[in-house]
Design a protein around this nucleic acid. Structure first.
Lengths: 255, 255
DNA sequence: TATAAAACCTGACGGAACTGTAGGTTCAAG
DNA sequence: CTTGAACCTACAGTTCCGTCAGGTTTTATA
């Protein structure tokens, strides 16, 4: 097999960087079927096969499945819809890329949180991660129920600001776990609520708060939003927290 | 099943957006095993299960495999190495992202080419795509054999410049297919070679050309580079092209 | 030329994270 | 009491190979 353009499968594999198993597989499925020594059954690859493999790898690179590639190779006139499929694959890649970027951002945020906080209760952590995951869906919810520009503004908050809110939220969660059981009018409890609300206000800004307050949303839709962002608290804790908040609001109204 | 925190699998699926079949799967593999009605065998999901699912989805989002997630759920003290695995996954995501971006760039280039040229011989097209694919490997080759800064400069050429070279290359390939068979000293052939060389020079710039000419690389290594970028020409065409180039060079020296 | 080592062959199984299907049981409403 | 929707289990299939296992052919060496 020393000829200049006849290769054994091993040589061909070496030359192209494609594993022998993969070449077997491509042969088996009809993608790349080289000549065969009829007595021994050994495969004999030629220059033509390099070109074919190149085609295959290129199409794979562009995102085609091997199955589709098989069809494309057989039908010679495939330049017709190439453009269309290309833009389709481009779209798919774009989505994939966005997903990846979101994950990367989430990891960055979690890492930072761990850095600052040391250790974080896992339930809380997962609530945060989950809400990062569904940030897009939440945004869609917002756009359906609130004016789109507000939603837009919310989603444009800097990473910095989001990180700060994360920390506040974690702080809240920790304190809730500590203070749970005390009466809602306990000054410590009320202080905690105050701090949390202030941080939220600082994040949202006055205008947004006002708009949000003015918007009335149906119970069912609220339910839907809550499904998107389940809380890290047990039902009892959540109940208690709600009561504490209501109490705080009432006090504020009295002033 | 109208209770507020007990759900049938259908309701749970609706609520969480995870398909019934997947929930079955998670149950089967031990990831999320809800209560079961002992007589009917129907699954009964509770609030707790939402939290668990949230954990699962979060960890998946961060890049963990279901297998690992299964272990993480059981072992409560997993915050220990979280940081390490997170940065690991971050790396992986970064690589993935780069791969995707390369594919996207390739598609853009191909699309543009199709736009400008109308239709392109598939062999040539695939040569181009293949060389985009292996641009990194080619760069590594360069860095091994030529000074790193030259390689760097080459890979920093703008997309614009690359597109232009693509077109020139395609032009060359078309003409080669047309002119093949004519004697190498035919003026049309020589004109084609000239045009191509000039375009290459324009792309590379004088300094680079000079450096490239000064560098001598072993035959074996050249072979390696050629394996990376197989030509769209048949052996005969390639042979003829080489001769035509040599003739052109000689003529240039005579001047 | 005999023999050992390397390369090659086919065939089957595995795996990651699901999805699909078939055939049967249970539930909710009319 | 019936009907249709929802649910159950169990098995198979998907993609693109990696990894044996057990046998044959080629190549290198003694």
């Amino acid at each position: 097999m020393k000829g200049n353009n006849k290769f054994s499968i091993g040589e061909f594999s070496e030359k192209t960087g494609i594993s022998i198993r993969t070449l077997h597989y491509y042969d088996e499925m009809g993608l790349l079927q080289p000549e065969k020594n009829p007595t021994s059954g050994h495969r004999i690859y030629s220059h033509r096969d390099i070109l074919t493999l190149q085609k295959i790898l290129s199409l794979k690179f562009l995102g085609y499945s091997l199955d589709k590639i098989l069809h494309l190779l057989n039908e010679s006139s495939f330049t017709v819809d190439l453009n269309e499929t290309l833009s389709l694959h481009f779209q798919a890649l774009e989505n994939e890329k966005e997903r990846i970027e979101q994950s990367m951002t989430a990891i960055k945020r979690v890492t930072k949180l761990l850095e600052v906080e040391g250790e974080v209760d896992s339930a809380i952590l997962f609530t945060l991660i989950h809400s990062m995951q569904t940030e897009n869906i939440q945004k869609e919810w917002m756009e359906r129920h609130i004016q789109a520009d507000i939603a837009e503004e919310l989603s444009k908050k800097t990473e910095e600001e989001k990180a700060t809110l994360d920390q506040t939220f974690i702080q809240l969660a920790k304190e809730v776990k500590q203070l749970y059981g005390k009466p809602v009018e306990d000054p410590k409890v009320q202080e905690m609520i105050q701090t949390y609300l202030e941080a939220s206000f600082a994040f949202l800004g006055e205008d947004l708060i006002q708009e949000l307050a003015d918007t009335d949303v149906e119970e069912l839709d609220i339910q839907e939003l809550e499904n998107l962002t389940p809380s890290p608290f047990s039902d009892d804790e959540q109940q208690w927290l709600n009561e504490a908040m209501e109490y705080c609001m009432k006090q504020a109204e009295l002033d």
